[in-house]
Amino acid sequence: MQITLNNRVETLEVVRLTVSELLKVKNFTFKMLIVKINGKLINKTEYDTAEIADGDDVQVIHLISGG
């Protein structure tokens, strides 16, 4: 399937995957992050169940200290 991840088109070898699986596959290792699927915030408690499907627009934002 094809998704848009942080404004870049990505092709994945699976039909569906959860947020947790995506974070693992794409090596998002930061503890603190914000995930949005098609503009909707995904709560941390939903990472194991929320599924990403073909055509979805996914935003993963690392929260980085400093300001």
Binding site: M32, I34, L41, I61, H62, L63, I64, S65, G66, G67
Partner: peptide
Amino acid sequence: DRADQKEMLIETMLKDFPEKPLVVGLGVA
């Protein structure tokens, strides 16, 4: 300054004020 505070603000704004523009600063060091 701190990532956990940034997370709290961004999550709260996206949940409670999804229509309000939020301008964040990430990665300045």
